[in-house]
Simulated scan of single mutants.
Amino acid sequence: MYTEFFGLSAKPFDLLPNPKFLYLSKGHRKALSYLQYGVQENAGFTLLTGEVGSGKTTLLRDIINKISADVTLSMIFNTRVDGHQLVAMINTDFGLQTEGKDKVQLITELNDFLLEECTSNRQPIIIIDEAQNLSEEGLEEIRLLSNLEADNFKMVQIILVGQPELKQIIAKPSLRQLRQRISISCHLNPLNREETEEYIYHRLATVGSRDCVTFLDGVFDAIFRFSGGVPRLINLICDFLLLSAFVEESREIDMDLVQDALNELSFDDPVSQGSVFESPGRDHQPMNSPIDLDGRLARIEENYAKLNANRSEKEAILERLSSQGSILEYLINQQQNQFSQFDGQLKKISAQIDRLRQTLLVDSKRSSVEESILHRSKQD
């Protein structure tokens, strides 16, 4: 909607985890290096954690896009399943038949498949996103899968990805064997104030120019305070700010636009809203606590979805009005054409009447002259 106004090829702050927009902060660069090392060295178990919206899935997609042709991948997103269902989903992803088979059969066939892949010099990788939703039974099943190994190498590499509570779950005594198998572990922290500014400019430059819009004093500080440095929240507010600037036909984003945007996006929390406009120092940390960030993000995304729905509804109404206006304009033009044709006909008829009137007048004068001559002749 606003991309043409700002000269952008696409929306820079879309919520989809698109690796094209991957911004490598210090923390993201470290996590990406760890993941790449784990894949290249077939490290067995790798753990990646981070707050909701911190960019974990974007990192995963970047890794997947760079995976070599000799890798066989299974990627699981739905983790609210039991152990049997989890193994079935992994087998299905690897192209194995699962219908009507119990867990023992599934694991046996998975083991045979992994052994065959390894003997064919292919590297099987299982990526499980949102792993914090797995039950202890599911996590234990994952540990047992990691036991599938040949004499001198692991037959499968497993990457667990989840929110910070995943570490707390794995720390339970009942899962110590799983914890002991994790060879690489990294955590994604939110962006700091400087990284937040660079992140915004990076996404603008990816689809156009970082100078397509001007952010006035205090705007980046407010965005950082509101988002806590979480990329998904930064995307939410920046998308709304660009839309607001487009509506105002302005290429500048000031604090008034930020205030309006935050009032629309935020929920009823005077303390939070008040803190957004305080000026943080260079090393100031965001005020959002990890405990309530998930809930806050969910509420803000809900408001954002409602605003997008309202926007879509208004655009549909405008489109219908525009269509109706086009039809009305067509009818008016048709009427004008008909009136023009009728007016032309009237002018022709009027001209014919004038010629007829002139002819009659001439004939009348001629008759009068002839009668006068005839009358004189009779007198003579």
Rank of each mutant, 00 (worst) to 15 (best):
Y2I: 13
T3R: 12
E4A: 09
A10M: 14
P17V: 10
P19L: 06
K20R: 14
F21R: 04
F21C: 05
Y23L: 00
S25M: 11
A31C: 11
A31Q: 01
Y34Q: 07
L35C: 07
F45W: 12
L48A: 05
G55K: 10
K56T: 11
T57A: 09
T57K: 06
L60T: 05
D62V: 02
I64L: 09
N65R: 11
A69V: 13
N78M: 04
H84M: 14
H84K: 15
Q85F: 06
I90M: 06
T92Q: 09
T98F: 04
E99A: 15
D102P: 09
K103R: 13
Q105M: 12
Q105G: 04
T108V: 12
N111Y: 10
E116M: 10
E116Y: 10
I125Y: 11
I125A: 14
I128E: 01
I128M: 04
I128F: 07
Q132P: 08
Q132Y: 11
N133T: 02
S135P: 03
I142V: 14
L144S: 07
L145P: 00
N147Y: 00
N147G: 04
F153H: 09
I158V: 12
L160E: 03
Q163R: 11
P164M: 05
E165V: 02
E165R: 14
E165M: 05
I169D: 00
I170Y: 03
P173F: 07
P173R: 08
L175Y: 12
L175S: 14
R181C: 05
I184N: 05
I184W: 03
N189Y: 14
L191K: 03
E198N: 14
E198L: 13
E198F: 15
R203E: 02
L204E: 04
S209A: 02
R210F: 02
D217P: 07
G218A: 08
R225C: 01
R225L: 03
R232D: 00
R232C: 05
L243M: 15
L243I: 12
V247E: 06
E252Y: 13
L257I: 11
S266M: 14
D269I: 01
H284W: 13
M287A: 07
S289P: 00
I291R: 11
L293E: 02
D294T: 14
L297F: 07
L297M: 15
A298M: 03
E301D: 09
N310T: 09
S312W: 13
E315T: 14
S323K: 12
E329C: 01
N333S: 15
N337D: 07
Q338M: 08
S340V: 11
D343N: 14
D343V: 04
G344T: 09
R357S: 01
L360T: 11
R366H: 05
S367C: 13
S368K: 13
S368A: 10
S368Y: 02
L374A: 08
